[in-house]
Design a binder for these strands. Structure first.
Length: 433
RNA sequence: GGAGAGAUGGCCGAGUGGACGAAGGCGCCUGACUCGAAAUCAGGUGUACCCUUUAGGGUACCGUGGGUUCGAAUCCCACUCUCUCCGCCA
């Protein structure tokens, strides 16, 4: 959420920022409502003030007895009606204003590159080299079943499209990746957290998933609970509503959780394989920092995420999202894209964002400066390190060999019981029946 | 699921209809004392919003939402959460 006072103070600047996002928002309605809100506050507070003073007079008059008290009581009854009316229109206007403000996306930092969409995201760095194959590299949706570790058909049988069953080396590999990433994060100073996978509406609103993107989330029928689309939601909301001591900052958390996404509107894309699932595992990093620290923190967080890929010997590049591609709540985002030879493309494997004070304002998360000054909003950041499914895909596709086997990256072997290679299973790949 | 108890400021804790933003204590800040510190003494110490802005004034907030009343931390209703006991259960 944006600071309504800043929005109103400089409507044109906000309009320009929204135009940079290629978004379309109704700011005039906001300034309109804000004006009505102010008028209502002035009139109801004045009425309430008089009501308070006269009420004290009544108490005295009542003690002394006499007709005066009765007259005063009647007068006050009218005034009371006035106050109630004013208060109810005020809360209505404030609710409308709140809804509008909650639907405004964050303002990108000024130095975020301008652009209309993904194709205009500038590449900022690249690590390693595209592996070269003297054979035709396979896609993971062929490799996985041949190795007997990915079963798309049974996934569909159990739950439907976009669900997959991992077996044997696949299940083990996913577990290994999660443990490896978590250990790496903890080693970098993140505290490991196990969170609820279901969260309430306030939590989803705090990080920005609601109210605008309710269709993207899975909701528990009959209850106001949502399956988390990412551990960003529980981790960031850990401190919702708190007044934090400056000396306690920064908070740095990591968690490995399942994530659930309805993928509404994504029907045509990535229908094959593990890339786009309704349920996937992800290791998430979340940081809560002082405002002046967030830009540097983002670079470090990004590097922490990249380190995972380097340790796994996976070629990747980093792009910065241009204004037109930036997520709703983000002020700046770097995507890490891993090379997938089976698809001859770089695909997003992590998204690291600085949300400035946008989420903090939504969830009223502030800190008290050590010098005793007024509370200030914190800045929040998060990034995946990494999405386990997509990492598994990258390992299969980048480390595959001509015979269909896959080399387990060195860093993962301790987590795989020393296993060095995943071998194809005879007759596997089409035996589902 | 059944029975009961509770939710008050940074923390503990008093408060059963008007002078309560809220006693008292702790913590914290400032001053005095001290070479310095501790102890002691004195004063101060919430958040948000609105008006006016050197300064100030006002309103709201006692788990959440409703209700009664001229007036609610205080009375009524619903909900949420916490604790205790019983049942059930991974």
């Amino acid at each position: 959420m944006l600071d309504s006072r800043k929005v109103l103070a400089d409507l044109d600047a906000i309009k320009a920022a929204m135009a940079r996002r290629r978004g379309d928002v109704d700011l005039d309605a906001i300034s309109d409502l804000a004006g009505r809100r102010r008028d209502l506050i002035v009139s109801t507070e004045d009425a309430r003030h008089r009501q308070k003073r006269m009420g004290q007079g009544l108490a005295k008059a009542a003690r002394e007895g006499g007709d005066y008290a009765a007259t005063l009581r009647a007068e006050l009854k009218d005034l009371s009606e006035q106050v109630k009316e004013g208060a109810s229109s005020l809360s209505q206007v404030e609710a409308e204003l709140e809804t509008l403000l909650l639907s405004l996306p964050n303002i990108p930092y000024e130095d975020v590159p301008d652009g209309a969409g993904p194709e205009e995201n500038p590449e900022v760095s690249r690590w390693g080299e595209k592996p070269s194959f003297d054979f035709e590299p396979k896609a993971h949706w062929d490799l996985g079943p041949e190795l007997g570790i990915l079963d798309f058909e049974r996934g569909a049988r159990l739950a439907g499209a976009r669900f997959t069953v991992l077996m044997d080396g696949g299940a083990r590999l996913e577990r290994a990746l999660g443990a490896f990433m978590l250990d790496l994060a903890v080693g970098s100073g993140y505290r490991e957290v196990a969170t609820p996978l279901l969260v309430n509406r306030d939590s989803m609103t705090g990080t920005g998933q609601l109210p605008k993107f309710e269709d993207d989330a899975f909701k528990v029928e009959g209850q106001d609970l949502f399956l988390i689309p990412t551990a960003e939601v529980p981790l960031t909301n850990l401190h919702r509503g708190e007044l934090i001591e400056e000396t306690d900052l920064p908070f740095r958390y990591c968690a490995s959780t399942a994530c659930f996404r309805a993928e509404a509107g994504g029907y045509g894309t990535d229908t094959r394989g593990l890339i786009r699932q309704h349920q996937f595992q992800k290791v998430e990093l979340v940081e809560i920092v002082r405002p002046e620290d967030s830009s540097e923190a983002l670079l470090k967080l990004l590097d922490n995420a990249c380190e995972v890929l380097r340790r796994l010997d996976l070629h990747y590049r980093v792009v910065e999202l241009c204004t037109g591609d930036l997520g709703f709540a983000a002020a700046r985002t770097f995507d890490i894209e891993v090379w997938l030879p089976g698809q001859n493309a770089y695909r997003e494997i992590s998204s690291c964002s600085d949300f400035s004070d946008y989420q903090a304002r939504r969830m009223k998360m502030r800190y008290r400066p050590a010098n005793g000054a007024k509370p200030r909003l914190v800045h929040t950041l998060n990034g995946s390190a990494l999405a386990l499914g997509r990492t598994l895909v990258a390992v299969l596709e980048q480390h595959q060999r001509p015979d269909g086997s896959v080399v387990v990256p060195e860093a993962l072997r301790p987590y795989m019981g020393g296993r060095q290679v995943l071998e194809p299973v005879a007759g596997a790949g089409r035996e589902t029946s």
